[in-house]
Design a protein around this nucleic acid. Structure first.
Length: 913
DNA sequence: GTGTCTCATGTCCCTTTGGGAACG
DNA sequence: ACGTTCCCTTTGGGACATGAGACA
C-alpha cells in the first residue's frame, strides 16, 4: 500500500509538542501500558483489519522512522486521564490545531479528509510531519467484512477488563490524593472566610452547597495540562494555577469538600475500551476514534477546529443558544455560555464571562438552581417519543406501585398525583412543568450547546436530603448540583459511554452507575459480566463503605417506620441505604420506547419478542405500551419445555395438565431408499411439540423397584440425567464391566445412559455403568471387588507368563545362533564380537572374569558375554573349564577391547584402560 | 441527523438412541 | 457361536447477534 504523507506544517510544532515527548518519559508506566495494550489490540486486529484501525488507537507508536514528527506523549501519567479530557484539552487544541497525534488522530474526521493528504515523498525541510501507514481514509472507515470470532471476543473482553482495572487503580490514586492534607489546607486557605463556616455538616442540604460550588467554579477552570506528574503533584500544580484537567478540577473539588469535613467521594466514568471486538478497534460512527488512552469528545473538538478565534466561538455559541431557546431569559443565555466557556477554557473570554456571571450569580444563586439555565433549554418542543416515554414512565410507576426514584419523588411528587389522576393534562404538564426531568429533551439541548462530556465529578453526602440523606451529585466543573439525572443525557450527547460510574472514597470504590443511568438496558450488554465485576469490586466496596458508610441518624418520626419495616436488627448505614436506593432504581427503570429494547430487558417484556420456549404466565399486569404492544413485567415470562426436557430435571407434568404451548417441530428428513431406484426422497414431516410450564409440574414419580426388578424405559435402559432420574429403590453403579458381574450373579440391571455423543453425523447414547436395585448394591460391590481382584491377579499371571515366554524366545534364539556358530566353524570373529556387544548391551549383565590370566597390572573391566546362562546352555558338559589361549585373542585398537575366547565358544572382553 | 424497524446473514447451540463386517 | 471393535460418513434447524437499508 502506498504510504500517505501529511504536511502538518507549523501548527504541529507547538511548544507543547516539543515538550510533550520528553525523553525522560520513556519507560513510564503509561508508556508501557500504552504499548502493551496496543500490542494486544494489534493482535486482535491481525488479519482483516488494517493498521489504520489500530494505530491511531494507541499512541505513541514507536515506529522509528515512520513517524517523523515528535509525537506528544500521553500528557499525564495515567492511562485514562491522558485522553479523557474532553473540555480541558480544548484550549490546547486551539493553540496547536489538530497537531497532537493523540488528539489529532481521534478528534476530527477532517484530519482524515483527502484534502489533508497528498501523495509524495518526504520533503527535507524542518517541518515536522507524520507518515501514516497503509490505508486511505476511506478504507479506514470501511467496515469489516468478517465477523468477530470467538477469539477476538475473548481478547476484547480481556482488554476491557484490564482497562477497567487500570481505571479503577487510577481512581483510587486520585481519591488518595484528595485526602492529601497539604492540598486540603491550601484549598481552605483560598476559601473566603464566609464560606469556610458555610456548610452545616450535620444538617447539610444540596442547596447549602451552592455558594461553595459557585465559588469553586468561578475560581478553578479547566485547562489542558501536558505535564506528566504524579497525581498529588498534578493536583498541587492545578491548585497553584487554579487551572487543570477536568479530572484535577473535580479532584480538587473533592479535596475542598473533604477539607470542610464533608463526606465526599470522587466519581469517575470508567470509559473503558469496548467489550465488543469490532468497536474497540474501529472509529465510531461519529468519525472519532476512541481508544483506551485516547477518548475524545468530537463535538467539542470539531468546534475548536472550526472556530479559530475564541470570540467567534463565543458568538457562535450565543447564537446557537439564542436560536434554540425561544423566549428564554437573558440569564439562561449567560449561564449556558458561561458553562461552555468554562469548559473550553479560553482565558480572556472566560474571565470576562466569569466576572459577569459572578454578578448575576451572587444575586441569584441563593434562590435559583444554577443548572436551571441548562434545563431551561428543554422547553423546546418534545418529540413524539419523548412524550411517549414520559407517559410510559408514569404508567410503569403506577402499575408496579413501587416508589419512584427518590430524587424524582422529591422534585415532582405533587405533580405525579395530578398526572395519574388526569391523563389528559399529562402531556402538557410534562412539557411545561416537568421539563427539568426530561432527559430526552435535555439531550437535545445539550447537543445544541456542544458542551463536553462530564467524566469526573464529586458526590457529597447530604444528611438532610430526602428522608434518610443521600449522596448528591456535584459537578463543579460544569456548575451542576444534584444533577444526577442529567448526566446520562450529557454523556449521550457527547458520544461517551456511561457503562461504569464508580465512586471512589476511603481508598475503595463503589459502582454507582444505577444512580446516573436511567436506561440500563442500553448499557447492560456493554458491561462486563457482573460476576467478575462484583468480585473485583468486593474488596473495594468494603473499603469504601468502611470510610463513608457511617450509621445514619434517622429523624425520630422516621426511625419508627424504618425499624418496623426492616426489623429491629437493621442499623441503617449510608452504604446500606445507598444500596437500597440503587436497588430501587434497578427495579423502577422507565419503560424503553423502542421495541427491540424489550428483547433482553431485565424488567420488562413484550409478547412479540418472546422466544419459542417462553410464555407469559400470568399474562399481566400490563405496565404500558410500546408501539401498540402491551408491556408486561419480565417476571411474567416463564420458560416452557417438553415433558422429556423436564424429565431431565427430575420433574414430570401433573396429571390432566394441558400443554400451555405447542410448537411445530420438524422431524429430521429420513433417508429412505426407494426400492429399485437410486434416488432418495425425504420424508419431511412436522409434528407438534407440547410444552409445559413449571407451574404444571411435580417431582418425578417414577415406578418403584419391586422384587429386585429395575423399572426400565421402552429401550430397556434407565436415563440417568441426574440422581433425580433414578427410580426409587435403585442405585447407579459407575463401574466398568459392572454389568458382567450383575449378569454372573443373575441380578436384574439396566444400562445407565448418561447422555449423548455426536459422532459421525449422528447421536450415540453414552452409557456409564448400570442401575440395580439398592438391595444388591453391597453384594455387587463385594463381587465386583472380588472380580476385580481376581482379574488383576489373572492379568498379573498373564503378564508374567508372557514375560517368561518372551525370555525363552530370546534365549532360544541366542542358543540356536551359538550352535550354528559351533557347528559351522567358519563364523567370523567380527560376527561374534557383534553379537557379544549386542548381548552385552541388552542384558547389561557384567560378571567378573575369574579366569583372567592376564598378569599385567591393568584394571580389568570384564564382561562375560551371554551370561552364565548362556554358558550353561552352550556347554553340554557342566564341569568344563574355559581356557583362553593367546592365539584366539583379538584386540580392537579403536575400542581398546581385548577379546579372549575359549574353544567352547565362550568369550570374554577386557577393556584396557 | 437520528432513531427505529425489518430483513438478511453468519454463528452457535441443541438435537439425540446403527448396523454390518471383521476379528478374537 | 458369541462378543468386541472398527468403519461408514461427516446433520441441520432454530435461536440469536449483527449489519444494511428503508423510513419516519
Amino acid at each position: 500500500m502506498p504510504r500517505k504523507v501529511s504536511h502538518r506544517k507549523k501548527k504541529s510544532s507547538t511548544p507543547e509538542n516539543e515538550m510533550g515527548a520528553p525523553n525522560n518519559s520513556e519507560g513510564t508506566l503509561t508508556e508501557i501500558s500504552c504499548q502493551a495494550v496496543g500490542n494486544l489490540l494489534r493482535r486482535a486486529n491481525k488479519g482483516g483489519t488494517s493498521k489504520k484501525k489500530t494505530m491511531p488507537e494507541f499512541l505513541p507508536e514507536h515506529n522509528g522512522p515512520q513517524v517523523l514528527e515528535p509525537i506528544p506523549q500521553p500528557k499525564t501519567s495515567e492511562a485514562g486521564h491522558c485522553s479523557r479530557n474532553p473540555m480541558g484539552d480544548a484550549s490546547a487544541e486551539e493553540k496547536c490545531g489538530n497537531v497532537s497525534l493523540d488528539k489529532g488522530y481521534l478528534d476530527s474526521k477532517e484530519e482524515l479528509d483527502d484534502s489533508d493528504w497528498e501523495d509524495g515523498t518526504v520533503p527535507k525541510d524542518d517541518h515536522p510531519m507524520t507518515i501514516e501507514l497503509n490505508v486511505t481514509p476511506d478504507s479506514a472507515v470501511k467496515k469489516q467484512s468478517h465477523r468477530a470470532s470467538a477469539k477476538d471476543k475473548d481478547l476484547a473482553e480481556l482488554v476491557h477488563k484490564v482497562h477497567l482495572l487500570c481505571l479503577l487503580a487510577r481512581g483510587r490514586l486520585v481519591d488518595s490524593a484528595c485526602d492529601d492534607p497539604l492540598i486540603q489546607a491550601a484549598m481552605l486557605s483560598l476559601l473566603p472566610a464566609h464560606l469556610v463556616q458555610l456548610p452545616n455538616v450535620t444538617k447539610l442540604t444540596s442547596k447549602a452547597l451552592h455558594p461553595l460550588v459557585s465559588w469553586f467554579h468561578d475560581n478553578f477552570h479547566v485547562r489542558s495540562t501536558n505535564a506528566e506528574k504524579p497525581v498529588c503533584f498534578a493536583l498541587a500544580s492545578a491548585l497553584e494555577s487554579r487551572e487543570g484537567s477536568p479530572e484535577e478540577i473535580a479532584a480538587l473539588s473533592v479535596a475542598l469538600f473533604r477539607a470542610l469535613n464533608l463526606t465526599a467521594r470522587f466519581v469517575s466514568i470508567l470509559d473503558a475500551t469496548s467489550l465488543k471486538p469490532d468497536q474497540s478497534c474501529r472509529p465510531d460512527a461519529s468519525g472519532s476514534s476512541k481508544g483506551i488512552f485516547n477518548t475524545s469528545t468530537p463535538m467539542v473538538a470539531k468546534l475548536k477546529l472550526d472556530f479559530k478565534s475564541p470570540k467567534k466561538s463565543l458568538s457562535y455559541d450565543i447564537d446557537k443558544v439564542s436560536e434554540s431557546s425561544l423566549g428564554r431569559s437573558r440569564k439562561s443565555k449567560k449561564c449556558s455560555t458561561t458553562s461552555h466557556m468554562a469548559q473550553s477554557g479560553d482565558p480572556p473570554i472566560s474571565e470576562d464571562l466569569n466576572v459577569s456571571i459572578k454578578k448575576s450569580q451572587t444575586s441569584e444563586t441563593q434562590d435559583n438552581d444554577p443548572e436551571s439555565c441548562l434545563t431551561d433549554k428543554s422547553h423546546k418542543s418534545k418529540r413524539k417519543g419523548d412524550v411517549e416515554y414520559e407517559m410510559q414512565l408514569q404508567m410503569a410507576l403506577a402499575a408496579t406501585a413501587v416508589g419512584c426514584l427518590e430524587s424524582k419523588m422529591e422534585s415532582g411528587a405533587n405533580a405525579d398525583e395530578e398526572k395519574i389522576s388526569c391523563p389528559s393534562k399529562r402531556v402538557k404538564r410534562v412539557v411545561s412543568a416537568d421539563a427539568s426531568t426530561s432527559s430526552q429533551v435535555f439531550s437535545t439541548a445539550i447537543g445544541s450547546m456542544k458542551v463536553g462530556s462530564p467524566l469526573y465529578w464529586a458526590e457529597v453526602y447530604c444528611s438532610e436530603e430526602n428522608l434518610t440523606g443521600k449522596w448528591v451529585h456535584i459537578d463543579a466543573v460544569n456548575l451542576i448540583i444534584d444533577g444526577e439525572d442529567k448526566v446520562e443525557s450529557m454523556v449521550a450527547a457527547c458520544k461517551t459511554s456511561l457503562r461504569y460510574v464508580v465512586a471512589f472514597g476511603g481508598r475503595g470504590a463503589k459502582d454507582v452507575t444505577r444512580r446516573y443511568c436511567m436506561k440500563w438496558y442500553k448499557i447492560a450488554s456493554q458491561r462486563v459480566s457482573s460476576t467478575w465485576w462484583d468480585s473485583v469490586l468486593a474488596p473495594l466496596r468494603d473499603l469504601e463503605s468502611g470510610a463513608n458508610g457511617g450509621v445514619v441518624q434517622l429523624r425520630p418520626n422516621q426511625n419508627i417506620s424504618t425499624e418496623s419495616n426492616m426489623g429491629h436488627s437493621f442499623i441503617p448505614t449510608r452504604s446500606s441505604l445507598e444500596d437500597i436506593e440503587l436497588e430501587t432504581r434497578a427495579l423502577t427503570e422507565p419503560l424503553p420506547t423502542n421495541q427491540q429494547a424489550y428483547k433482553s430487558h431485565p424488567l420488562y417484556a413484550i409478547e412479540k419478542w418472546l422466544t419459542k420456549y417462553q410464555v407469559l404466565h400470568p399474562k399481566g399486569p400490563i405496565l404500558g405500551f410500546c408501539s401498540g404492544h402491551s408491556v408486561y413485567p419480565r417476571t411474567c415470562v416463564k420458560t416452557v419445555k417438553t415433558k422429556e426436557r423436564w424429565l431431565r430435571e427430575g420433574l414430570q407434568v401433573k396429571a390432566g395438565e394441558l400443554p400451555v404451548k405447542e410448537i411445530k417441530r420438524s422431524i429430521k428428513p429420513q433417508k429412505v431408499q426407494d426400492s429399485g431406484a437410486d434416488d432418495y426422497y425425504c420424508s419431511d414431516s412436522m409434528e407438534n411439540s407440547k410444552l409445559y410450564g413449571m407451574w404444571q409440574l411435580e417431582p418425578l414419580n417414577l415406578p418403584h423397584a419391586v422384587n429386585g426388578i429395575v423399572p426400565k424405559n421402552e429401550r430397556g435402559q434407565v436415563d440417568v440425567w441426574s440422581e433425580k432420574c433414578l427410580p426409587p429403590g435403585t442405585v447407579h453403579l459407575r463401574f466398568p464391566r459392572a454389568f458382567s458381574v450383575a449378569k454372573r450373579l443373575e441380578i436384574d440391571y439396566a444400562p445407565a445412559m448418561v447422555g449423548f455423543e455426536f459422532k459421525n453425523g449422528r447421536s450415540h447414547p453414552v452409557y456409564d455403568g448400570i442401575v440395580v436395585c439398592a438391595e444388591f448394591k453391597d453384594v455387587l460391590l463385594e463381587a465386583y471387588a472380588e472380580e476385580d481382584e481376581r482379574r488383576q491377579a489373572e492379568e498379573k499371571r498373564r503378564d508374567e507368563a508372557q514375560a517368561l515366554s518372551r525370555w525363552y524366545q530370546l534365549l532360544s534364539s541366542i542358543v540356536t545362533r551359538q550352535r550354528l556358530n559351533n557347528c559351522y566353524n567358519n563364523l567370523s570373529s567380527e560376527m561374534s564380537t557383534d553379537i557379544q556387544c549386542k548381548n552385552e548391551n541388552e542384558s547389561n549383565a557384567a560378571v567378573c572374569g575369574d579366569n583372567d590370566n592376564n598378569q599385567s597390572p591393568k584394571h580389568h573391566q570384564v564382561s562375560k558375554s551371554g551370561t552364565d546362562l548362556d554358558t550353561s546352555l552352550s556347554t553340554p558338559v557342566k564341569d568344563h573349564v574355559h581356557v583362553f589361549l593367546k592365539e584366539y585373542e583379538t584386540f580392537d585398537e579403536v575400542t581398546s577391547l581385548l577379546t579372549k575366547r575359549c574353544q567352547c565358544g565362550f568369550s570374554v572382553q577386557v577393556e584396557e584402560l
